[in-house]
Design a protein around this nucleic acid. Structure first.
Lengths: 245, 245
DNA sequence: GAATATCCTTGACCGAGATCAAGGTGCCGG
DNA sequence: CCGGCACCTTGATCTCGGTCAAGGATATTC
């Protein structure tokens, strides 16, 4: 429950500075940000912001894991994006000058910094490269969102599971000694279903089928994939084989 | 078949200058662009660029209608976006520095201008406001794409048709003398189905049902909606009632 | 204006995935 | 060790939308 007292109050430090957005800043600007930016701890289940809220600034995940969800009134929701250490939240709303369209729910104990809108604008005005960095990121995200729509509409659930695992491989996959692939999923089965856009019961069934077919093995949040090619075969014809270029 | 010879060779003129991106430019920059930018005519069916192509610059629709599609190998495709007079094509790829993810297919005879990547970068460097204009646009688009995903996953076909018509109302809707709403859809039934992410047969059936229920009337590309509230009722609970803010 | 291709609608059928309902299974606090 | 709880899996059933196939309607061409 975020029991630790964080000695380091500086958000902008360590590997976080390697993020494309902050890399364009120089030392003095980093120091300035560290002096201004508030950083606080969140426990799992807490929300950083809610769908419909007015956007006041940017959030930076110094450490942790956060889910961006969209809810509909009937209780169903969809997981739009996972954000982990180093990721930024709220830039879409800030730069579109619109209210939040998603709710940011903390999944693992997190430290999150807040940068007010005015600061962001000031930084961008001072560093044109920052605008480019954001542009590149948002455009890339847009491409992913379109790809996701395409996939959801044209591909079977099974193909989408395969695709999802290949995506997660990028961030959470490791090679095991015996040459197979291990993916340590950071999320529950339900959240996984929400990312794929499917009911969790259906996801369970699909995973079982794929297990029976010897394509993968699951244990809790751990997935083993013996042969990546067999996963790729699940994708429909001519679907981009290298998601997340 | 684009038989007309276009006397005006200048792309950047008239209402097109009111677009948020070009509004930030001053007279000399507009003149400069008009001197450089190539403008050519396309006939329906022609493609401006193809999925997978490297991006060389930006396209501006001086006049016409263009569809951005994603294809999968099996012949199925999805219509990602409609672009009409004044709209810009290819900015996602250009700014993300990625190949095109969609194919731009001309639907109605169009005149389209081309601005090379280097020119765009030069302009942005000169006018930081241009970067902001693009940022706002892309972020807004991203929001729409996420909303669309959410909708597709959680709502029934019928609700999605209702939502689609409310979207189209913004651009193509007019009030008729008798107080009902007339929407002149610029696209075929098939394209409409591709935008909603559904087979055209299913769309036909859904339209028929809604017609039988007295919610709307269709004739060719013309849709009448007697009572907008009844369309809104079709949307699931708590779905954003004002799409395209 | 007949020929022809394309688009749209309708019908019959089917199947993937949703829904409803009931167990498992693991986890935490007592 | 046991009870409670959240998460996951499985089963049975249903239904929405996809698929296949056949007609109509509408353009387009000659």
């Amino acid at each position: 429950m975020a029991s630790a007292s964080y000695r380091r109050r500086q958000c902008f430090a360590g590997p976080l500075l390697a993020e494309p957005e902050w890399r364009v800043l120089d030392r003095s600007e980093i120091d300035w940000l560290n002096a201004i930016v508030m950083c606080r701890a969140y426990a799992p289940g807490q929300c950083i912001f809610h769908e419909g809220d007015a956007c006041q600034g940017l959030y930076i995940i110094c450490e942790g894991l956060v889910a961006l969800r969209k809810h509909d009134g009937a209780g169903a929701s969809v997981l739009i994006r996972l954000a982990e250490t180093g990721d930024i939240l709220g830039y879409r709303s800030l730069l579109a000058e619109e209210p939040y369209q998603t709710t940011a729910e903390v999944l693992k104990p997190s430290r999150v910094g807040f940068v007010a809108t005015t600061i962001v604008h000031e930084l961008i005005a001072r560093k044109p490269d920052l605008a480019f960095a954001f542009l590149r990121r948002v455009c890339h995200d847009l491409g992913e969102a379109q790809e996701r729509f395409h996939l959801t509409v044209t591909q079977s659930l099974r193909a989408r599971v395969a695709y999802f695992l290949l995506l997660m491989k990028e961030d959470y996959g490791t090679e095991t000694p015996d040459g197979s692939l291990l993916i340590e999923l950071p999320i529950s089965r339900r959240d996984m279903a929400e990312m794929i856009g499917v009911r969790s019961e259906s996801l369970s069934r699909t995973i079982r089928q794929m297990t029976d077919d010897g394509i993968l093995a699951f244990s809790g949040h751990r997935a083993w994939i013996g042969n990546t090619d067999r996963l790729l075969d699940e994708l429909g014809p001519h679907v981009e084989r290298h998601p997340m270029t």
